[in-house]
Amino acid sequence: MIKVKNLTKVFNGLTAVKDVSFETRAGEIFGLLGPNGAGKTTTIRVIATVLQPTSGTAEVAGFDIIKQPEDVRRNIGVLTAEIGLYDRFTARENMRYFGHLYRMEGEALEKRIEYLIEALDMGRFADRRAGQFSTGMKQKVAIARSIIHDPKVIIFDEPTAGLDVLASQTVIAFMRKAREQGNLVVLSTHDMAHAQKLCDRVAIMHRSRLVALDTQERLLQQTNTRNLEDAFLQIVGEDAAKLVEHEREEQHLAGIKKKRRFGL
């Protein structure tokens, strides 16, 4: 369903994604794991055609991201890490607007909206303006919005961030249901414990590269560990992990300096 081939993305001389390749298939939950800043979100953005790859390419449901970006977008549903809604629109209106942009109309669209309101348990606030919503409520609407067109490929970037246990359960149940229906679900998260419960196969990203790609069982077996977190540390080495953290902190500071220089 998704075929990523030697994908590289460079921003202003900074390599965010380097030579990443992997393949996923329908009916699985695929984990894209790694610490913050490893390049997961950039990878997703390139796959979803929001960003242009520097080199390499990818295919989504048989469509090439460079040659057929609009077909790719029609077949993919992405929940972005940063969720935002139109505050002056109700939950239903938010969903309807995106439905229209996916060329859905009339009764088919209204039925789909009604189904999602049921599935994500949004009945109590579906007709209230999003400005008053809690993080959990917003997250549910954002999820519904991202899959309004019933895509075959679903990518969720940190879908349970900021959610309480109960709301998380709703989202998790939804992902499992999507897998049962034969869709591909890509779960991108830094929370390895969370991923361990859900994912069939995982790809681990570290410093813009893919460092592991396998089923969970085999990964744990190879590294002789009990959970994905330990497996990750085993693969990249604890010292290296710390080094990356330091690098990231420095980059952040440098970024601030740069912003000041160019900010008006």
């Binding site: 929001v50 609009e70 029609r74 993919i76 972005t80 942009l101 954002a142 991202s146």
Partner: peptide
């Protein structure tokens, strides 16, 4: 500011 731009760019609309 509302963080809705990316979701909008993800739709098939060019």
């Amino acid at each position: 500011e509302r963080k809705t731009l990316e979701a909008l760019l993800l739709t098939p609309a060019s």
